[in-house]
Write a protein that binds this DNA or RNA. Structure first.
Length: 311
DNA sequence: AGCCAGGCTCTCG
DNA sequence: CGAGAGCATGGC
């Protein structure tokens, strides 16, 4: 089993990045972070594989090892899994310009210290980001996480690797096979089940082309995605941030995000979507997406991070 | 018990 | 056009 080495752009902290990705739980759907190892089940060329990443370096001089586990690992698979894991952990993102730009920002200066080395993790695919976002629309984070995890377990493909049962994120066909009733039983509303099935059929027939989206500007991607039923501005921005790794994407409609901004910067005065978009653009500009990641990191962590206090 | 959650669509003035 | 209803589950 050949282990290969990955070199992230420093600073990179695997612990902080993987914890954020799994919502500070050892296991969240297809994401596993346990015993200092970040694992993710993937289907590559028809093979069910588990990529396992461990840190063998430091935050300032990071290095990771990748092991690929599975029942027979095709020759090219290790390289493909390495690419996927590198993209999901956003290994090549350089945080330094963002840190420099936000040095004078009272809240982010504290957050970037608390979460120093947090790279903005990505989903494995545009489809995955869309499904996760739709599940999370409007409902609380706790409920969204429960339904997301339940969905992966019910519809993903399970296999044994690394001493336990792991699950891939369900493919478009898995959702289509499951159908409306099955999705409803997982806790989705009838509407959301329809949205997801619609998007799954677009993904399955190639209408939703992730390769093409990568070539488009933020605005073009949003214009295209909102054509999909169930996808509005918030979801489109979420996809830009989570699946396409756009560092300047900003889900201005996000209620929780607006509340943090309100508390951290506006003394509690509430802020609307339009105003939030302008605020983020003016204050963070090209780094609004990274700022969002750090604001969410603050939100996701149960206890108040050291050095950050909201009034 | 009832209200609100990391939105979106549909309907009705 | 803008405003409002309805949606699912889990926590408070």
């Amino acid at each position: 089993m050949p282990a290969i080495t990955l070199i992230p752009t420093p600073p990179f902290d695997l612990h902080v990045t993987a914890s954020h990705q799994t919502y500070y739980q050892p296991e969240f759907g297809a994401e596993i972070y346990r015993d200092s190892a970040y694992s993710r089940a993937l289907e590559v060329d028809g093979s069910l594989l588990l990529g396992v990443v461990r840190s063998v370096g430091t935050i300032e001089a990071p290095a990771l090892t990748l092991e690929v586990l599975g029942d027979g690992v095709p020759p090219r698979a290790t390289e493909l899994v390495a690419q996927e894991m590198a993209r999901m952990l956003a290994l090549t993102v350089n945080l330094r310009p963002f840190y420099t730009a936000t040095r004078e920002d009272p809240f982010l200066a504290a957050a970037t210290q608390s979460f120093y080395g947090l790279h903005p993790p990505q989903t494995a695919s545009v489809f995955e980001a869309l499904v996760m976002a739709i599940i999370g629309q409007q409902i609380s984070g706790v409920v969204a996480r429960a339904i997301r995890a339940r969905t992966v377990r019910a519809l993903g493909t399970s296999f044994t690797a690394g001493g336990g049962t792991v699950y891939t994120f369900p493919k478009a066909l898995d959702f289509l096979r499951a159908g409306q009733e099955r999705l409803r039983a997982l806790g989705l509303s009838a509407r959301k089940a329809e949205y997801i099935l619609g998007i799954a059929s677009h993904a399955a027939d190639g209408t939703l082309d992730p390769r093409r989206l990568e070539t488009l500007s933020n605005q073009q991607v949003v214009e295209e995605l909102v054509q999909l039923r169930g996808v509005g501005p918030w979801t489109a921005q979420w996809v830009l941030l989570r699946a396409l790794g756009r560092a300047d994407a900003f889900p201005a409609g996000d209620l929780a995000l607006r509340r943090v901004i309100s508390q951290a910067y506006l003394g509690g005065r509430s802020i609307g979507e339009t105003e939030a978009a302008a605020f983020a653009q003016e204050r963070w500009g090209a780094y609004a997406g990274l700022a969002t990641t750090y604001l969410f990191a603050y939100l996701r962590r149960r206890r108040t991070p050291e050095g950050i206090s909201l009034s």
